[in-house]
Design a binder for these strands. Structure first.
Lengths: 156, 156
DNA sequence: TTTCTTGCAAACCTTTTGCACACCT
DNA sequence: AGGTGTGCAAAAGGTTTGCAAGAAA
């Protein structure tokens, strides 16, 4: 894990002149670059979670030169530092969304494949009543609704 | 899609002697082989959905010679013919389970990674109350509970 | 005997990694 | 200036496919 997010850069450490063998002031993930800004902006501005290719495509509009390797590296960075959440739906694609959205669930359109955020959580009020085997401890849950989004349902 | 499952072989069609350009009596997926029996047995005998590697490992105990390609081909066959369901949890691994288990959900242990079937469906009775955007049509849902299974919770 | 199935290996595709150069600080 | 970050291309990992041999029916 990294000490700081490049989105929330820390103040430089006080320079006390001490000599250190391992320079801890130098860490991966603290440098603000146009590529990283483009990637985080793409994720933040999306109405739903995005797959890698979608992130690449949208972020490239902001930085013409952007390699897929950078997208993967940055997503790993953002995920490990807790700024972004990865989620995997039944189509097997991993999608990414901002981590500060709060607890919510998703709607997956079987026609267009898009994923939409659903506000709120209907599970919370029944979570206690869900029967699990003796000794099992529930820590979290994921709910995905599948069906047709409004646009696809209309064009049926 | 295939006309028949090799698990439920159809009777041969009556031989009326008619000449057909495309021989429809000959179809992929209708031949009973030790590999296919081993794969379906592994899936049926499991208490929860299995990943490809687990299926290969268990099925190999029944047929010493079994290639990974056959596992993939058979899983595709079984999935497309509706005998097996594929599911993808948050770890990104695709797992397979018998399709005749009825509607149910899963518990994913974050410690050992195993997936357990949960009987029943707590969503059914609240499905109508789940708020979705105007025009969206719910057709299905998936629920996964995450936490610790009894064994892992006990060895904490 | 015919045609489907299989195993092997090559092909594919997606994700990761090594390296030299670019760029932040 | 120093060291992180990037792009490119190669490597790695997992899944699919072509093909000749093997096995159902």
């Amino acid at each position: 894990m990294h000490g700081q997010s490049f989105l929330n850069p820390r103040q430089g450490p006080p320079d006390d002149g001490a000599l250190v063998l391992v320079d801890e002031s130098s860490q991966v993930g603290e440098r603000r670059t146009s590529q990283r800004e483009a990637i985080t902006a793409a994720i933040r501005q999306s109405k739903g979670p995005l797959a890698v290719e979608e992130i690449l495509h949208r972020a490239r509009k902001m930085t013409r030169t952007l390699g897929i390797a950078t997208v993967y590296r940055t997503l790993k960075l953002l995920t490990e530092s807790g700024q972004v959440h990865a989620l995997t739906l039944s189509d097997g694609q991993i999608r990414y969304e901002a981590a500060d959205l709060g607890h919510h669930h998703h709607f997956h359109c079987r026609a267009c494949g898009r994923v939409f955020d659903l506000p709120g959580c209907p599970i919370k009020r029944i979570e206690q009543d869900i029967p699990v085997p003796e000794g099992f401890q529930i820590e979290d849950h994921e709910l995905t609704l599948n069906g047709l989004c409004a646009a696809c349902a209309a064009s049926d």
